[in-house]
Design a protein around this nucleic acid. Sequence first.
DNA 1: ACCTGAACACCGTTCAAGT
DNA 2: ACCTGAACACCGTTCAAGT
Lengths: 224, 224
Amino acid sequence: MAKRAVAADSLSREAVVDRALEIADAEGLEAVTIRRLGVEFGVTPMALYWHVKNKDELLEAMGDRILASITLDDLDASAPWHEQLGAIIHKLVNALRPHPTCTMLAARRIVASEAGIEVSERAFAVLREAGFSVRDTASIATQALQTAMMLITAEPGAEPGVTPEERERRLAEKRRNIERLPADRYPRVREMVDALLDCDDLQEYYDYGIAVFVAGARTLLAAG
Amino acid sequence: MAKRAVAADSLSREAVVDRALEIADAEGLEAVTIRRLGVEFGVTPMALYWHVKNKDELLEAMGDRILASITLDDLDASAPWHEQLGAIIHKLVNALRPHPTCTMLAARRIVASEAGIEVSERAFAVLREAGFSVRDTASIATQALQTAMMLITAEPGAEPGVTPEERERRLAEKRRNIERLPADRYPRVREMVDALLDCDDLQEYYDYGIAVFVAGARTLLAAG
DNA sequence: ACCTGAACACCGTTCAAGT
DNA sequence: ACCTGAACACCGTTCAAGT
């Protein structure tokens, strides 16, 4: 018999982090446990400790892995600074979208991991060369990167780490709750219900969100 | 002997949520457990289940409590819409700041709890009357409220739910990590180190962050 | 170098029973 | 109405031991 497919995910740090991300994507971050990973790899829980120091380190590695998927070399360094800033935020958004339940893990590693520092350096450079002070660059850059995270977690109708049926159930419940509200006290919330629970064009949602932030940064620079 | 002070925090849903918030503020959200609360009140863990359905419901109640601390009646309805929007974000920021480890709990309840809906309604009304479409109002408003949350979690030098000594230790470690970076590859990150790890004026930090967002919203409205 | 067995100190939660 | 006792099915983690 030839080498089994299983051999491909034999135990290794790489494979553990991969599997942990898959579990988080499918069932949510709370489904990621050392013991569960043991079962997945057909191994006792303690075997995992050979490959990761402890669970915290595993979570850090998951965040690092997401940030490491970002490539920056195709950024256009000759574009206007605000376009470059928008492009960086877009990169981050695209890296995070496949792993919405792990947004916080990536956020915590943005000035800690190698890949995160790379992104930060780029954002800082763009803003400094645009003319922002050190202090304002720090503010705008962290806010920019966190805006990417925020757009993911606030995505309308997203119920990450949950089966499609469960997602439908939760959205229907939210809708019922909103529609139960008295129309005289909460006319606007009721008017918003569709826009809040469902998004027909996610690309537009992200573009708009990023545009708001970038426009704000431009105004503040102009205002000095 | 008169009534003991202890009587004030005899077991009740109110008292449980209060104590849970105090524990989270002092030691982080992961220190909040049913069993720990049992110890705090001198009672078996199971006693808690009379007052809250389960731990999830407790976490929801904590988020609701934070949002409920916001008062909206002193908002100036005659001010320009962008000032009103900024004021709402400020209200949210001020409500969250005492409980930085619980930001996510409040975020999850913003369109679920009574108090959260109240804030949302106000934000929606301001934006609709300013002339934003339903879709754009939904985008801007959620982004506005999430921006408040984001500013809290991204606060420079904040290490919430940790003793002052532990905070110093962590910040020193972050500083060492950044200063170890090669100066030729990461000049900007190294230049930023003080601004990233420490903030001499938090009020300015929040004002600036909110100003960026509000300015962006104004530009997008003008651009149609 | 890599994994297991046994054990420890934790979790949240149910359910029948007490007062 | 409010709380306890006993029990269950989970966690993460250590450490000595196996191959």
